[in-house]
Design a protein around this nucleic acid. Sequence first.
DNA 1: ATGAAAGCGCTAACAT
DNA 2: ATGTTAGCGCTTTCAT
Lengths: 349, 349
Amino acid sequence: MTTTEDHAPSARAVTIQDVARLAGVSTATVSRALALPDRVTEATREAVLSAIRETGYTPNAAARSLRAKSTRMVLVLLPGIGNSFFTPVLNALEEVFSDQGYGVLVGYTRQSRRRETHYARVIRAGQVDGVLVVTGNVPRDEEFVAVPDQVPISLMFAGIPGGDRFSVFDVDNRAAAATMVGHMIAAGHRRIAHITGPEGSIETNERFGGYCDALTAAGLAVEESLVWRGAGNFDFVSGDRAAARYFALDDRPTAVFAAADEIALGFIRSLKTGGVSVPRDVSVGGFDDTEYAVHYDPALTTMRQPRTEMGRLAAEDLLLRMSGKGGVKPPTHVRLPCELVLRESIRRL
Amino acid sequence: MTTTEDHAPSARAVTIQDVARLAGVSTATVSRALALPDRVTEATREAVLSAIRETGYTPNAAARSLRAKSTRMVLVLLPGIGNSFFTPVLNALEEVFSDQGYGVLVGYTRQSRRRETHYARVIRAGQVDGVLVVTGNVPRDEEFVAVPDQVPISLMFAGIPGGDRFSVFDVDNRAAAATMVGHMIAAGHRRIAHITGPEGSIETNERFGGYCDALTAAGLAVEESLVWRGAGNFDFVSGDRAAARYFALDDRPTAVFAAADEIALGFIRSLKTGGVSVPRDVSVGGFDDTEYAVHYDPALTTMRQPRTEMGRLAAEDLLLRMSGKGGVKPPTHVRLPCELVLRESIRRL
DNA sequence: ATGAAAGCGCTAACAT
DNA sequence: ATGTTAGCGCTTTCAT
């Protein structure tokens, strides 16, 4: 192999200077021809454009950012537990933002303070014009305290109670959970267990609250032995662990509400391995309606969260708040409806 | 709500000037105290650090990039068909890069020329120091032609034949596919079908090649009626469509090799709906070993691609190539081994 | 309509 | 060891 790389150092990148020289105008005119085409004569615009084509000029992003005090980039903060819930969200975000010429920087916080500090610094360094937090928790880091004053921030899927500094895009987790459990009750179930999400997350608390609400409304007691807590994250493993608790029980529930689809899927799979069949022996409901829910056997009955729509709306709101056009847009709270998707994993008793 | 947002315009961000003034030194010294701590006395370093703490100073990224001609950002180009294959890859990439102080910009090309052009421009604008293409195809856009000379580029999961301008991180798709089909043959299967990936992708061709190799090596003919092409992407829908072809056949295969796990899962699911059981009536093998393969019923026998490891290695290589330390590191080709993961979806005949 | 020139915040020669 | 200064590439007044 004879190739020797010759990046950066090699051919000096073409600058606005080169274009100006070639077109026989000043750099200011080149800049104008690009940004405000109707403020230059057609002749000069043509000359500039042709010089640009000839040189292959692309404006330097750093110089532009430095001058314009805007990077046209947003930071999307994800938990990074690598579950597939976020795939369509990120997809929708990237679509809207890139269409508007914004870049999407992704950051995985992984529940690590160090990483949160890292990304707080990214924001404070002026590297992004806005932030989308898709983690369920606003980073606790003190460095984050000052951050909302610097750039607009939005929270997705779980809002901070009382925070009017952020736009919030979420669902009514509590009501949605109550609907699911209410559906189980309507199907004749009386002993209903709940596999919670990770300890301390807002969604976990809300969905547990909804579970209690539905039980209470039906005159049913919340039994501690049927609330399977601290199983882990919103993932398969949590479902596996919950299955162990199911098997350990003498008086088993006839239905189980899992706080997320992946938990439900892991649970069902472990039950099968133990010879228990869903929904024949026990009914299972999930939450989210991720891609795999419908393809599973049994197809999972679950609460659909409108992830793509949420992503789109959140992106559009942030775009508006970043642009500052038409006065500064105040943060909003948008609550989208969930939908109970009936499939095969819950049966009538 | 009384909150009115006051971003950017409000409090002017603190600059190196402010720190210098407060510490009673020059800006150069502040810069040094940060970048080369041992080139200043301990006393001044202390003074600077304390001034930084007091002011909450964070160096401006755009200014630094402009001056240093390095953005400490990489672009990760994904196909964006939103399948879960890429989740662990992106996870690994973000982990390595952010640990080294690099930001990860994600771009979904979505097989759209417009988007490829868009991201070519991002590169040419000097917005990133390196690029990772995780799409299986190098963007065809002519704007991309000049790009490899500007920043190092790496290809993941599928290399371009004959391209020594890129680092390539892949697996031997052909051999891996042959191993899978060889396993089916060893299990007694003689009529083996293949569901291909999307038309024109390198992986699709390679895996089909391996399928043929294995058949040929066993003295079996490749029957056109058993090669199910153009089903779509590496997704469930392709599996659904393939199921229709299975049902339409008089002389059905006893085993089916799907070019990806999601295809296999969609296929199995559709078979079930049609009353055909896996592996009782037909065996199915997948490719990738995504998270869902093991949790499915039946658990999917598949070829594991080392996605996380691949991400880590590719990131480390790119880091080295970007740094330019120790001479410019030439592009490499790293080929990682796949692993046949035996589970429940293929049975001995 | 166009040009000249200042300056965004930082780093790195060069000078002391 | 520290300060002075030029300048990265661009946009945007302010003149003309």
